[in-house]
């Protein structure tokens, strides 16, 4: 059993990648809302990005595996809905990681992650996952996904 060092838990969680966008961790995505130590157990509060996001189940499993591999057994995952997840929680560095990965980060207007052009066209409100929309760059002509602001 581990003592109540929640910093250690945050550190470990920060090594768990988002299953769909492995360039960023679940902590950077903003879905880990809280970690507390209570009655000899770590309570980790998670909020879904989208209600039906299939990644939620996947990263819960990944978190369990990561913590267990690091000798932590006394924890509990809890789903919370309030406050609802928002892209506003995403740090600037995280946005930069997304851009380098080829995804236009959340912003008013979708900017091409390849050439930084602001002249882009919306192809579809829904990309490969609910959290992204699909666009085309009018300058370099590359198609790309944009992380929607919600």
């Amino acid at each position: 059993m581990q003592n109540g060092n929640t910093n250690k838990i945050w550190e470990l969680l920060n090594t768990v990648p988002d299953p769909e966008i492995p360039a960023i961790s679940v902590v950077e995505l903003g879905v880990i809302r809280n970690v507390i130590f209570q009655e000899n157990s770590f309570i980790i509060s998670i909020t879904p990005t989208y209600s039906g996001c299939p990644a939620v189940k996947a990263f819960q499993d990944d978190i369990k595996i990561c913590l267990k591999e690091n000798g932590i057994e006394n924890f509990e995952l809890k789903i919370v809905y309030s406050p609802a997840w928002t892209t506003d929680w995403m740090a600037e560095e995280t946005k930069e990681k997304l851009r380098k990965y080829g995804i236009s980060p959340p912003s008013e207007k979708a900017i091409c992650p390849q050439c930084n052009s602001k002249s882009t066209t919306l192809v579809s409100e829904f990309g490969a996952t609910a959290c992204k929309s699909f666009h085309k760059c009018n300058d370099c002509l590359e198609p790309f996904e944009h992380f929607k602001c919600i």
Binding site: Y50, E125, F126
Partner: peptide, 20 residues
């Protein structure tokens, strides 16, 4: 293809809401 993905994503949102 785009519309297929859009309708499936909307469906998934609604399943998630129903689950909650």
């Amino acid at each position: 293809l785009e519309e297929d993905i859009a309708l499936s994503n909307i469906s998934l949102d609604l399943f998630g809401q129903a689950n909650g």
